[in-house]
């Protein structure tokens, strides 16, 4: 359940942004989560919504984009999508660090992301008041 600590860090960062920008309301938060990270989107969303309650973030939408893994092989210069283990008895594809071309060990170039990319804001200063 490390999603809780990640969601706490996320809310902390957004509340800090919110405190510095009192005239803006955060409507949507866009995250990028890499294929190689071990973060469950649904759990992260649940934790975020729970922590955001009764804060200026309540009601904001959390949008999570998955970033596909890209690997490169130092042995045969392959660069691209990783090899997947089809016979692993898994319901989801199991990514490996085996080169799809030469079978040796690859290095991950992309896929470890866990970051806030952007936020969508409503400018309450210029918006008409009710």
């Amino acid at each position: 359940m490390h999603e809780l600590s990640i969601a706490s860090g996320l809310v902390e960062k957004l509340l800090e942004f919110s405190a510095h920008n009192p005239e803006r309301t955060i409507l949507e938060v866009r995250l990028e989560i890499g294929e190689l990270s071990h973060i469950d989107s649904e759990q992260l969303r649940f934790c975020y919504e729970s922590i955001a309650k009764e804060t200026p973030l309540e009601g904001s939408i959390l949008t999570i984009a998955r970033v596909p893994a890209i690997v490169s092989c130092p042995h045969c210069t392959y660069r691209g999508r990783p090899d997947y283990w089809d016979e692993a008895l898994a319901i989801a594809p199991v990514m490996t660090m085996r080169c799809p071309h030469c079978g040796k060990a690859v290095e991950a170039e992309q896929g470890h992301e866990c970051a806030i990319k952007s936020v969508r804001l409503l400018d309450t200063h210029t918006a008409p008041s009710v």
């Binding site: 860090g9 996320l10 866990c114 970051a115 806030i116 990319k117 952007s118 936020v119 804001l121 918006a127």
Partner: peptide
Amino acid sequence: MIKLEAQPDEIYDIELEHSLLEAN
């Protein structure tokens, strides 16, 4: 109920590159 919709020019995106694992 009063419904209020923001005009497109009142909603905008800003880039906020921030890694959530960076602190650790």
